[in-house]
Design a protein around this nucleic acid. Structure first.
Lengths: 184, 184
DNA sequence: ACAAAACCCGAGGGCACCCTCGACTTTGTA
DNA sequence: TACAAAGTCGAGGGTGCCCTCGGGTTTTGT
């Protein structure tokens, strides 16, 4: 995961960092379809330079998303460590959507609003596998209704991503309603 | 609601009808932001003619949506006529989302994805008022939890509109989970 | 049958975004 | 210091959509 190839020239490394910073902010704020030209400008760099570093939007996303997805993995680990499986489950969902609320790019990725690189796709996939374990554990403990399937998570994420964008204040309230419906 | 002003010339009336038909199909299929040029083409009419009849997208929507919104009103009336208030409530929601599933334009309007004309906005508003009565009735009957407010409907509609677009097959399943959470 | 009114057409100018490419500048090295 | 390699720049061409406007066509009334 570290330095893949040749060392970059000093100015190139600097520009790359500025681009990553700008893109992280832009993607987080406006989603993964933020205009690349604005990102270049706000990084103080020309559009040509942007394309020199990241030839496609996908490559760009590839360089940024793994960090956010790692946070999601942490969340899953903590959820599995939680003594009460139901607490683990609800805490995981709450944390997940809080992440989505802070980072619309992550939200776009999880909701599959854009084509993603195989690498990011794979990361999402393992994330969902962790989630499946959390779900199974909550079902086994008899607290989560047994007809809720891991596959139900994807649509939920996509619905919540919409909710979060529209009313960042009230998504928890609606999640709570939904969770009440999921109790065994 | 009938003929507002001067009678149209024969060919103009014909074109207007073709435009309305094409737009109804396009808006229904692709949402309210369907390209106007495609609508003109699929109506067999030039883009200039389209703009001659409907100077703005808003005006266009204005000419089409009232019909769909009327269907929504019917739905509400039937829901209030239902003997069991809970049945009325769930039936209303199911019908509402089924309408949204069939007409993405209506879905866009209800979810406020685009600026709407005052007229359509007003129609949406009265629709929501009917819904509020349905909700109150279900609460009074002791079947709907009392902390569910009419204002919660708008976010629900917007979340469901997302769900419907993404997985038209499974939205009922998730709605059912949610409704279980809403039982008193 | 004819003129005036009503209407239709589609080229074309804008805009926002995408992406490329050859000329120029900076960096690292000898 | 000087040169080649690495990197940067931004004008410019492409796309898709919006909207307008002047010249041509059809309808209507007489």
């Amino acid at each position: 995961m570290a330095t893949g190839s040749k060392p970059l020239r000093a100015d190139a490394a600097r520009n790359r960092d500025k681009l990553l910073a700008a893109a992280t902010r832009a993607f987080g704020e406006h989603g993964l379809d933020a205009p690349l030209e604005q990102i270049a400008r706000s990084a103080g760099v020309s559009i040509g330079t942007l394309y020199a570093h990241f030839p496609t939007r996908e490559a760009f996303v590839d360089a940024i998303l793994p960090a956010q997805l790692a946070a999601l993995d942490d969340l899953a680990t903590k959820a599995l460590a939680e003594p009460d499986p139901w607490q683990g489950f609800t805490g995981f969902l709450d944390g997940l959507f809080a992440l989505q609320a802070k980072d619309h790019g992550l939200s776009d990725a999880l909701a599959r609003r854009l084509p993603l690189s195989p690498a990011v796709l794979e990361a999402c996939h393992t994330g969902f596998e962790h989630a499946a374990r959390i779900i199974d554990r909550a079902k086994e403990s008899g607290q989560l209704r047994t007809d809720f399937e891991p596959a139900d998570l994807a649509p939920l994420v996509s619905a919540m991503s919409q909710l979060i964008r529209e009313s960042p204040e009230t998504w928890r309230r609606h999640l709570a309603f939904f969770l009440d419906g999921l109790r065994a």
